[in-house]
Amino acid sequence: MNKIYIVEDDRSIRTELAELLNNAGYETECLTDFSNSLKNILESESDLILLDINIPFINGEMLLRNIRKKTDIPVIMVTSRTSETDEVLSMSYGADDYITKPYNPTILLLRISAVLKRACKDNIKTSYRNLQVNSAKGSLSDGNTEIILTKNEMIIFQLLLDRQGQIVSRNDLMTTLWDNEEYINDNALTVNISRLRTKLSDFGYENAIETRKKQGYILI
């Protein structure tokens, strides 16, 4: 389980954020003593830091610089400042991503998982049962036959695979697809899922993707 460290001085956002991340299956720790931010962050041994810019005692950007001097742990800047200067400054100090408040929680979770994925490459699943997943080529193969997936099918399959055994909501699938510049509608998603099912059943995996009514899909 990945641990996320939350640096946020607004208490209500902090607790809601922690709840959101806990529900999404992350372990969380919040910074409460801002006078010793750097020391507390470094001692927490987290996998990712969510860092606000407007925090007491030290500016978030300066804090980021100090963190970067010690460690290259992934940092996502989360702030209500919407200016290009802040973003460029944060990125140049070594932030992995920059999100402005008020964020869409689904997008926030998406970004967190993307940054975590990038940080620890061995986390990416490249196989499903006896199938090799080649995301660069966009294909599935069992050694004998290779089936090409479309870009949309690949995005859907990859997300289901990352959360294998968990329910993935249509909302999450849609957000991921749109984040990948595939602006498809509800019907198209249904069509893509059913095509993906057909392709998986060609390998003999019938019913690999189950539908959970009003909740989403689950890859068995």
């Binding site: 607004d10 956002i13 809601e16 954020l17 408040k101 689904t106």
Partner: peptide, 18 residues
Amino acid sequence: WVHEIKLPVASLLLMCHN
């Protein structure tokens, strides 16, 4: 003011999601 007002909005959005 915009930064200030965005905090409760962000908070509410998270509450709705949670």
